[in-house]
Computed example of a mutant assay.
Amino acid sequence: MIVFLHDPLFGLTLTVGAYAIARGIHSRIRWLHPILSSSAIILIVLALLRFPIAEFQGEVGLLTTLLGPATVALGVPIYKHRRLIRERVASVLISVLAGSVTGICSAGALVLLTRGSHEVLLSILPKSVSSPIGIEISRSLGGTPELSVMFSVVTGVLGGVLGPAFLYRSGLRDPVSFGLAMGSAAHGFGTARSLQESETAGSFSALAMGLSGITTSLLFIPLYFWLG
């Protein structure tokens, strides 16, 4: 058992196994996102075994590396729906801009209401974009990249879990609008959830996620001088 724990396959086995269990739980409890439950399973196992987080991260490096090709692969459904995207280009641009502005303003309002520190403010502002982009924005502003990753993941998980129910109750059924909302607010997690909804929703969510990263980065140019 001790030998297996220090084998590089331990981290991969735990991650894949936890996700498989989480998918089974999700089939019975639909509101519980697999990412949320699988993360909880992994953390509980690591805590019980007193396994170092740093060592675990090294063992799952292969999965982290595969995130790049997986993200690029999102371009396939975008290309398949290029005609519909051209027809709805105005809606896409307006939605992404509105989502990016709302994401920044809501983060700032949350910190002000809770009387958070200036460091927390700089770290949480890019919460609605994917972690790699959020890290660079946070670092440029003088925030803490580690906090930015946490805020980005929490935002994505909450958006993936609560977003669909909120959109359904709001009467939104259009897959294009669904995808744009999820991709703009919950980046990768929202896109994964949108792909479960339909390929059209997933395509527009992936497009919104990419455009939101660009738009948010541009919006932070004047904020950099104001907050710096």
Rank of each mutant, 00 (worst) to 15 (best):
F56M: 05
L207W: 10
S203F: 02
G183S: 01
A186D: 07
A107M: 02
T64R: 13
Y224D: 08
E197D: 06
P34C: 01
L32Q: 00
L162D: 12
T65Q: 14
G156I: 04
L147C: 09
T215L: 06
A185E: 03
T13M: 12
I135F: 12
L32E: 04
E199L: 04
H81V: 00
R50H: 14
E146C: 09
F189H: 13
V161C: 11
H187K: 03
L158T: 10
V161Y: 06
S148E: 09
A18E: 10
E146K: 12
A70R: 10
K80F: 13
L227R: 13
P132C: 00
Q57C: 13
F204H: 08
G190N: 08
I221C: 07
H81Q: 10
P126L: 03
G75W: 05
T13F: 12
L172V: 15
M1E: 12
L48H: 05
L167N: 08
E87W: 04
S152P: 10
G99W: 05
P52T: 03
H6R: 14
R28E: 11
V176N: 00
A181N: 04
T114A: 12
L218R: 02
G58W: 07
F166D: 08
L48A: 12
W31R: 15
V153R: 03
Y79M: 06
A201S: 10
L121D: 06
T215Q: 04
P175N: 04
G183R: 00
A54R: 13
T64Q: 13
V92S: 11
S37D: 07
L43H: 11
I85A: 14
R139P: 02
F56K: 06
P52G: 05
L167P: 08
S203W: 00
E87Y: 05
A22Q: 01
K80T: 07
S184R: 08
S170L: 14
E59G: 09
G24P: 01
L219H: 04
F10R: 10
E55A: 13
E87V: 02
L14F: 09
T13W: 07
G143I: 03
V60Q: 02
V16E: 06
L158H: 07
V101P: 08
T144M: 15
T155R: 05
P8M: 02
G183L: 01
T216C: 13
V60H: 02
V149K: 06
L5E: 07
H6E: 11
F189S: 10
R193H: 05
G75K: 07
G134C: 04
G17C: 09
F225L: 13
S106H: 07
S123I: 03
L14P: 06
T216E: 06
A201P: 06
A186N: 05
K80R: 15
G210L: 07
M1A: 13
V153E: 02
P164C: 04
